[in-house]
Design a protein around this nucleic acid. Structure first.
Lengths: 354, 354
DNA sequence: CTGTTAGCGCCTTCAA
DNA sequence: TTGAAGGCGCTAACAG
């Protein structure tokens, strides 16, 4: 590895002092155009880039942000992350990604590390800010010690959490309305004449799950229907979970199945439809299905999935922007007001097309 | 943000010199046990971690690696990356991820940045090593200027490329046998009695595509069949591409369709099956389908996808390991010898089960 | 507009 | 076994 050239050498080669070179490096106005150009030429010629270490010693910034999420192979997190990375880079921040694997996942990985271990590692990396997505923060019962760890982290570096506000946590939050999507799904099914609607997927004890199921119950009641508890089967967020949940729903409701079911996301919907098929039922004829969170490729499954676009990508952008402004001193939480969009395809059995 | 405590303060608080503190920090043996313990206690108490900047100025290491890939939302890259990140971290390296978006992708993103721009950014980040996956390096014709950029990067920091060796490129490569999988697929279809086999997906001019199509032709010939060119339709790597490719295949071969088709990966297979369905054909009855690269969830589609597990996750592990050993001085390319595994499910029309 | 200089926090000789 | 001192590459006063 060729050793890096330093500012001193550039200064010597261009016959000026290091400060002058430093000035052109930092676009200081007070450099004569002639010198500036000459120096820049040398810089380019030698392909010189200043040492982040030396710079960091002074301004204590790495221009790196840390992103902590459970599992990048989950399309939900992936599409979110893509936006984050993209927008961070266009603001000159690079993104260090940590997969905490702190949710169940189909690969059954375990990490020996706790989330607070990750906090420590992140801190050591001296990132300028941290974005947290999923994991413990999504639990309904967040342990006080975890909140304290979060606060400690935030004391060192701005932390933006994507999810609902946690009692006693000083971090910044970026929240959004998660009911809207469910409500339009229920309305849609009602409009199609369904009375008994079920719900599958989502891990119990996780906020997003409860929020959605609550919204589900609530909007059912708004139609004068009390949803049947036995038509609600929670499990988790992946295809195998949708499969298992639907299987259970079918088995525990012989002869009295719902005519429509809402799945917590597209992977779960996929699994659920597969379970129906394996039980000799077909979708949407026997049970119509729609999901709350659209992923890519849902337009290519059989049947094509009716789903809700929660605009997660937009949320990703908002999150980085929030983090960057926090790094630069702004300290307010934001709530993103977005309008989830119902995407009607085949699995809901509607013939309507947008 | 609370400012960090320094080694000097630790030294003062424990009544020793900075050098002694430094010694305990770096596990130097020459510190009296008593002092060592006392100092360690203070370190823990104040939750002190040494500044990476100051350290970096001396050893020039960040303990960060850079990973460059086209699109993390592509499950192929995601599962690969997950392994990389995981293994890197267990070796104390954090991973900075760059999505170059340098392939077509369903989101139609564009970056204003070229891949060589990314090289520059990565270099500025002073990572200890770089892993490159996909993008230009996969092209059949790599421009000399790109190779030179790669070499220049490699002159500064170890670069590991996942893919086939590029003429004139000094980087480290991690290669694998990509024929094996195709061959077993062809054998499998032959064993099921298929004669006319088609191929869909993959971008023309990309090495992995050509390699697979070559392997396809070759193993067809081994059975005395010359594959029909009009039964081979390239496009790209995502579901919409599979859809479009199959649609074209169907349209351009009226009355003389293949009875089986190999798709370049599971997303393409999904799209292809969907196209068949939309054309009133069903899989595997009318055309059997199998794919070369298995992703998660393929076990839940309708029909379940017969596919090949290329053990990409293993490859990911090998790649980081290779990079880390390169960072530590080892400079040999490795070729991973793995045995792709055929996973027989429904889409190939076989009744056999493993 | 430009140069000089004092650190930033740490590690590493070199002496003691 | 310990401490003192130099220097890593850069920026930010401070002088000129």
């Amino acid at each position: 590895m060729s050793k890096k050239i330093t500012i001193t050498e550039i200064a010597e080669k261009s016959g000026v002092s290091v400060s002058t070179v430093s000035r052109v490096l930092n676009n200081s106005p007070s450099v004569s155009p002639a010198k500036r150009e000459r120096i820049q030429r040398i810089i380019d010629e030698y392909n010189y880039t200043p040492s982040i270490f030396a710079r960091g010693m002074i301004n204590h910034k790495t221009k790196n942000i840390g992103v902590m999420l459970p599992d990048i192979t989950n399309p939900y997190f992936a599409s979110f992350f893509l936006q984050v990375e993209h927008f961070a880079l266009s603001n000159m921040y690079a993104t260090i990604l940590f997969n905490t694997m702190f949710t169940k996942n189909p690969r059954k990985y375990e990490t020996p590390l706790s989330e607070t271990d990750y906090f420590k590692i992140i801190l050591e990396k001296q990132v300028d800010g941290v974005l947290i997505l999923g994991g413990q923060i999504d639990k309904e019962e967040v342990s006080p010690s975890f909140v304290e760890a979060l606060n400690e982290l935030h004391r060192n570096v701005p932390v933006v959490i994507v999810g609902s506000r946690i009692e006693g946590c000083d971090c910044l939050f970026i929240e959004r309305n998660s009911k809207q999507g469910i409500t339009s799904l229920v309305h849609h099914f009602k409009a199609l004449g369904h009375k008994d609607i079920g719900f599958v997927g989502g891990e119990p004890g996780i906020r997003i799950t409860s929020a959605r199921i609550d919204a589900f119950r609530q909007s059912m009641r708004a139609f004068g229907n009390e949803p049947l508890e036995r038509h609600i089967v929670m499990s988790d967020y992946y295809a195998p979970d949708g499969y298992q949940a639907m299987k259970q729903l079918l088995e525990q409701n012989p002869g009295q199945l719902p005519t429509a079911v809402i799945a917590i996301n597209d992977m779960v919907a996929l699994g659920a439809i597969r379970a129906m098929k394996d039980a000799g039922l077909s979708c949407p004829e026997d049970i119509a299905i729609a999901s709350c969170d659209q992923f890519l490729q849902s337009d290519y499954s059989i049947p094509r999935l009716t789903s809700v676009d929660q605009h997660n990508e937009y949320l990703g952008r908002m999150a980085v922007l929030q983090l960057i402004s926090a790094i630069n001193g702004s300290m307010e939480s934001v709530s993103v007001d977005h309008m989830p969009q119902l995407i009607i395809r085949e699995s809901c059995g509607s013939t309507a097309r947008l």
